[in-house]
């Protein structure tokens, strides 16, 4: 396949993402006389939301814009972390949640709900914070189990991740079993992942984490290339595999943790976006990571728009939508690659 130049690829991804953001900003709901409808604001109206101080403009600034920015941040972080996990595990089917990160986060989140943290002064942010701690603790535990000196064998890492994920899943069920019906509902709802109710406040904490994580991944991008043929080959090229994987792990934990704290676990974005982008721009992580992050931002903004629109005026959790469309889409991609013999990593 002919590959486009890095600048062109980054430019196209940026343009498409900006279009998705603009589209999402312009779509608004209007509840008429009993009938619900979605409308597209004119650019003039969009501008008036930016400049004026009426009720529509307040809704735009305080509710819609943070939601779009939140979707973009979470999407960029998940896609970036997806690239990093695939590179360090040397497996194109790895994703941000492969190593049990979401299971650990879910366990801490259900515990927070079980002990009424979401009903206390902390509110929903308390659950987000608990999930963030859960994600970081899980990554640390998996890393400690898998590390042999300063080596981190990918297969051991994968096994440790899957085992920890199963264990956390079992504990989550125990917590759910002992919970009240209302609590169980809130737990299940959290695990579906969603961007409704995202305000500026949590984003102020999540944004620096996502930006720092992405910067670190960009710096590691070349080391990921060297790692693609294994740690011995990487060492021969001057890259310390264990150090690279540990740093990538820390950056990914930051990205995924921040994303989970804002929106709960959202699947498939971290798996599919890097996969599609790799088919378009090639395997060089110095191009793949920035383009994936931008494309991930655009994808989640679009998915969230879909989640708002499909059942309007009701809303579908965006995590349900990404899983509903992501699954079949990924299968189609796999089948196509299988037919064309281009399935790598096997």
């Amino acid at each position: 396949m002919k590959r486009s130049s890095p600048a062109f690829a980054i430019g196209v991804a940026l343009l498409l993402t900006l279009l998705a953001v603009a589209l999402s900003a312009m779509v608004y709901g209007q509840l008429g006389s009993g009938a619900a409808a979605l409308r597209l604001a004119s650019p003039h109206r969009l501008l008036s939301w930016f400049l004026d101080d009426d009720i529509e403009s307040k809704i735009f600034w305080r509710l819609r814009l943070p939601r779009i920015v939140g979707a973009a941040l979470v999407g960029a972080g998940l896609a970036g972390a997806g690239c990093a996990f695939q590179a360090t595990l040397r497996n194109p089917l790895a994703e941000p949640y492969t190593l049990g990160v979401s299971s650990g986060a879910a366990l801490f989140a259900v515990l927070a709900i079980r002990f009424g943290l979401d009903q206390s002064f902390a509110g929903a942010a308390g659950v987000g914070l608990a999930a963030l701690v859960g994600a970081l603790v899980t990554v640390y535990v998996v890393w400690r189990i898998a590390a042999i000196g300063d080596h981190l064998p990918p297969s051991t890492l994968l096994l440790a991740g899957i085992t920890v994920a199963m264990f956390c899943g079992a504990l989550t069920m125990v917590v759910q079993y002992t919970a009240e019906v209302g609590e169980v509902y809130r737990m299940v709802r959290w695990m579906m992942g969603g961007l409704d109710g995202v305000l500026w406040r949590p984003l102020r904490f999540a944004a620096p984490g996502v930006l720092l994580g992405l910067m670190l991944l960009l710096y590691l991008a070349r080391d990921f290339n060297a790692l693609a043929a294994g740690s011995d080959a990487a060492a021969s090229l001057g890259t310390h595999a264990g150090r690279t994987i540990t740093l990538a792990f820390a950056a990914s934990a930051l990205l995924v943790g921040a994303g989970i704290a804002v929106a709960g676990p959202i699947g498939f974005v971290g798996l599919i976006v890097p996969h599609v982008v790799r088919a378009l721009v090639g395997a060089d992580h110095r191009v793949l990571i920035p383009v994936s992050a931008i494309a991930g931002a655009g994808t989640l903004v679009l998915c969230d728009l879909g989640a708002r629109a499909i059942l309007f005026p009701a809303e579908l959790p965006v995590g349900v939508l990404t899983a509903l469309f992501g699954g079949p889409f990924f299968l189609a991609l796999l089948m196509r690659e299988k037919r064309s013999g281009g399935l790598w990593g096997g």
């Binding site: 590179a87 693609a228 043929a229 395997a283 060089d284 790598w344």
Partner: peptide, 9 residues
């Protein structure tokens, strides 16, 4: 032995 995980040129 050498196995490349991704489609590098």
């Amino acid at each position: 032995s050498y196995r490349m995980a991704f489609p590098f040129t």
